Amino acid sequence: MHPDTWHGEARQRTVRRGMVRRGKARRGMAWHRCGGRNSSFRPPPEGTLMKRRRRLPPAIWAKRRQETWRRDEGRCCGPYCGDAPALPLEVAHIDHIVPLSKGGTNDMANLRTLCRRCHVLRADIAHQGMIAAALRDGIIPADWRPLVWEG
């Protein structure tokens, strides 16, 4: 790889004085010159962390969250809430059907409204951190394991 080129979108880089840090932490990081004298490439400001963004910026996420909640009419799309009343936006959970970690997107088609109980009981490793708090708050019963659902 030529040191004046910009490769590997998945790699994390930190910019410092016209140099780019490339590589993985285990292998060690190396500083490479980014852009030559005649190059049109200008690096971002010093100290900027260059990483492929998965999460939406907060302002855009707030709008997407509200759009999803409106589309679902504020109702939980989980398996346990059938005819339950609509949830206020402040307590509704917006869930990714296919998680970002598994290649999902932030498109409206991949988002749905869930209540806290249905969100906690969804069979996804990323949701396991919510179980202890839900047990403490009485949201789910002590024998919650049979209630876990795929989806």
Rank of each mutant, 00 (worst) to 15 (best):
M50H: 10
G74T: 05
R53V: 10
H32K: 06
A59I: 02
S39H: 05
A59F: 01
R71L: 07
S40H: 10
E46R: 08
G28P: 08
R75W: 08
R54T: 12
K51D: 05
R53D: 10
P43S: 13
A62N: 07
G47T: 01
E46M: 09
H32P: 04
P43A: 15
R55D: 14
W31T: 08
R42A: 13
G47R: 07
E46P: 05
P57F: 09
W69M: 04
T48E: 01
D72E: 11
F41L: 15
G47Q: 05
E67H: 02
W31R: 03
C76M: 04
W61V: 01
K51C: 11
P58M: 03
P44A: 14
Q66K: 11
A62P: 05
W31I: 07
R53E: 06
G47I: 02
E73C: 07
G74M: 03
H32A: 14
R75Q: 13
M50W: 10
T68L: 01
R52F: 07
G74E: 01
R37H: 05
R37K: 12
K51H: 06
R27N: 14
R71T: 08
R65D: 00
L49C: 03
Q66H: 13
R52L: 12
E46S: 15
E67L: 00
R52M: 13
E67G: 00
Q66C: 06
P57Y: 01
W31N: 12
S39F: 10
I60W: 11
R70M: 08
R64F: 00
N38G: 11
A59S: 13
K51F: 09
R75A: 06
R27H: 14
F41Y: 15
G74D: 06
W31F: 07
G28C: 12
P58E: 06
R71D: 07
R52H: 07
W31L: 10
P44Q: 12
S39L: 09
C34R: 13
L49H: 10
R27Y: 08
H32C: 13
I60E: 15
R42P: 07
R65M: 00
P58C: 02
R55M: 15
P44N: 09
K51E: 12
R70F: 01
G47F: 08
M50P: 02
G35Q: 09
T48M: 10
H32F: 12
P43Q: 08
M50A: 14
R64K: 09
R37I: 08
E46N: 15
E46L: 04
E46T: 12
W61T: 00
C77P: 04
P57V: 02
C34H: 14
C34K: 08
R75V: 01
N38F: 11
K51R: 11
I60V: 15
Q66Y: 03
W31S: 03
G35N: 12
N38S: 13
L49T: 02
M29E: 10
P45A: 04
G47D: 11
G47C: 05
G36E: 07
R42S: 13
G28D: 07
T68R: 00
P43G: 06
A62H: 06
W69V: 00
R42N: 09
C34S: 11
P58N: 04
